[in-house]
Amino acid sequence: MPLLEVRDLAVAFPTARGTFRAVDGVEMVVEAGEVLCVVGESGSGKSVSMLAAMGLIGWPGRVSAGTLRFDGTDLLTLPPRRRRRLVGRDMAMIFQEPMSSLNPCYPVGWQVGEALRVHHAVPRAEVRGRVVELLGKVGIPAPATRLGAFPHQMSGGMNQRVMIAMAISCNPRLLIADEPTTALDVTIQKQILDLLLGLQRERGMGLVLITHDMGVVAETAQRVQVMYAGQMVEEAPTAELFAAPRHPYTAALLEALPERALGRRRLPTIPGVVPGIADRPGGCLFNPRCRFATPRCLAEVPKLAGPAGRRARCHYPLDAAGRPTGGHPDAAA
């Protein structure tokens, strides 16, 4: 049984111009003990779909899904009170901005201990000792002296460590990390990533790592999902994705990596931007930026197709040599 199973997830927000589907048709399966990376540009719906899985989409957003299960428990029909017992204990999440994600009014020790107290994870008398142990575990020096520190008295990297301590406090089986290193400088990024992966291996947690850094993906993940404009466009084992991307968007993303563009005078880019609320194209959402787009791409919405775990949302998925297949006019020539 997969740890997290998501099928046909959609998140919609009402706007003045009608309902906007920030996330549409997202699928995801996370097995216990594996690392899954979710990549995509800003605004591609990575965070929103994970927040939806955690039940953190606030009013007025609306979440719908064909399937949303955690360890076999149907989260869609679970009453909110029962669902909150899972959230923060069995499934935890850390966020992008450690500075603003911690409450400025409370000491960090108290904030880390809160989940332990609320979920009755350890007897009350042992909360303090456990918090010290957790802070030490995430690499905070002299943890016992840091219990009373406020977030504004610590650095961003230290605060992110506090966030991680908070998330792992109740021994979650699934940890979702939403761009945990984006707000940190490069040397700290590496430390935080190593810490997360170390904890993941040690505890056998499932880890979903949201990132837009392909370098991070290559180093950490067993499997990758690529998102574009609120849709999952490709999924693949990491090595396969890097070797032979099937969706033109993934291929373009990989081409834009500086280390893959050695010897070229200019770094390749993807022209245009992710379609926003007002300029959604018909057919495939990537068609305005796709170099292989045909009239069919403008008219017909592609479905996820291909073998399980290696699917792509494209009418003409690329072959190993990077040529479009499926009867594309270029391929015939």
Partner: peptide, 8 residues
């Protein structure tokens, strides 16, 4: 959001 992510 962090507080809600703790299941409060």
């Amino acid at each position: 959001r962090t507080a809600r992510a703790k299941g409060l």
